[in-house]
């Protein structure tokens, strides 16, 4: 049976989302309910707040996506849902909702891996696919490089050993006393700053690996602001009070590290095509540095559309379509997993 119109559901972290997508490509409707305001006061995602918010949002989000698409459940061929990785309490709300709809409407159910879906979001930006690709997934929870041979085949080449790039940006923003989420705040604060105003050593570029490490960069920012061995409560050094320069330099260090690692992955594998997805893929400096490195080293980088970088259900429905075409299906015993 051909499954053409897919309802996607995403609830792995702090966004409750639903989308209806035809043939894995055409977005008929997409609704995202963000919880950022509910978590902002805490400086990060609070799992219990997230779980409660998903429960409140799931039914209105479902109603809204059908209304926006001007469709009913009779028009849906299957339901796709993020089952991993993510916050368990958050994933459980989306998966329970998806199983309930699948049972009530007698529709097939398919589970989707959230990280693979971010890669699919970047593939959706391309009219034609020429596999293989080097895929960089970069967000608040993940920083990983893969070799992608199809929408369903991803081989890990390297990942972060500690903080994800987005997590480093969040923590860096907190040190700079900028608001949560840190990525957009640092981008805004550093928009007019000199990215060479403060020199940061780019992490893990001195060895031949495709792994990342951002926790040292975070410590370097702290010491630049407060002096060697300084604490967050210490006063900021007089020479470190150029906020826009500091934000731009820190953001540059993150973006340049990611771009150069992609260049290295292309050189090592001989693959001249890069896909970039995940929340940090929205970052303008990363897009600019990736374009620069691509021109210098002969690779073409394709980013997910900005509205498909942060968590959304379009990519879930899209990848769900690909999985159904490949014969994958889940049943009512589908479970969730944090990793």
């Amino acid at each position: 049976m051909s499954h053409r119109v897919i309802l996607g559901i995403e609830s792995s972290c702090d966004e409750t989302a639903a989308a209806i997508v035809r043939d894995g490509r055409t977005v008929l409707a997409s609704v995202v309910h963000s919880q950022i305001d509910e978590h902002a006061a805490w400086g990060g995602v609070v799992p219990e707040i997230a779980g409660r918010s998903h429960l409140e949002a799931i039914r209105p989000v479902l109603s809204e996506v059908f209304a926006a698409a001007n469709l009913t459940h009779h028009d849906i061929d299957a339901i796709a849902v993020t089952a991993r990785p993510g916050l368990l309490g958050s994933l459980l709300v989306g998966v329970t909702a998806a199983k309930s709809l699948s049972w009530a409407w007698n529709k097939p159910l398919v589970d989707v891996h959230h990280i693979e879906a971010h890669a699919y979001a970047a593939l959706m930006s391309l009219d034609e696919w020429v596999f293989p690709y080097i895929t960089l997934i970069v967000s608040g929870g993940h920083t990983s490089l893969y070799r992608t041979d199809s929408p369903l085949e991803h081989t890990l080449l390297g990942a972060t050993r500690d903080d994800a790039a987005g997590e480093a940006l969040d923590k860096g923003a907190a040190m700079l006393e900028l608001s949560y989420p840190g990525g957009p705040s640092i981008e805004k604060a550093g928009a007019l700053g000199d990215p060479k105003a403060y020199a940061f050593k780019l992490p893990m570029l001195d060895r031949d690996s495709l792994e990342f490490s951002f926790s040292g960069l975070k410590t370097a920012l702290l010491y630049k602001l407060k002096g060697p061995g300084g604490k967050r409560t210490d006063p900021t050094l007089p020479e470190s009070q150029d906020l826009s320069g500091m934000a731009a330099s820190f953001e540059y260090a993150v973006a340049e590290t990611l771009s150069r690692k992609c260049a290295r992955a292309c050189a090592q594998t001989g693959i001249p095509r890069v896909l970039v997805g995940g929340g940090v893929a929205r970052n303008s400096r990363l897009r600019a540095r990736m374009a620069f490195q691509g021109e210098k080293h002969g690779f073409q980088a394709t980013f997910a559309k900005t509205e498909h970088c942060t968590d959304n259900a379009v990519m879930i429905a899209g990848l769900g379509h690909a999985r159904l075409q490949a014969g994958c299906q889940a049943d009512l015993l589908l479970d969730v997993a944090a990793r």
């Binding site: 429960l55 039914r59 368990l88 459980l92 709300v93 909702a97 709809l101 009530a104």
Partner: peptide, 16 residues
């Protein structure tokens, strides 16, 4: 957790 799953199922079945 148990209550939230039960309520998510009840609300979605109600919708569906």
């Amino acid at each position: 957790t148990g209550l939230r799953i039960a309520c998510a199922a009840a609300r979605t079945l109600s919708f569906a």
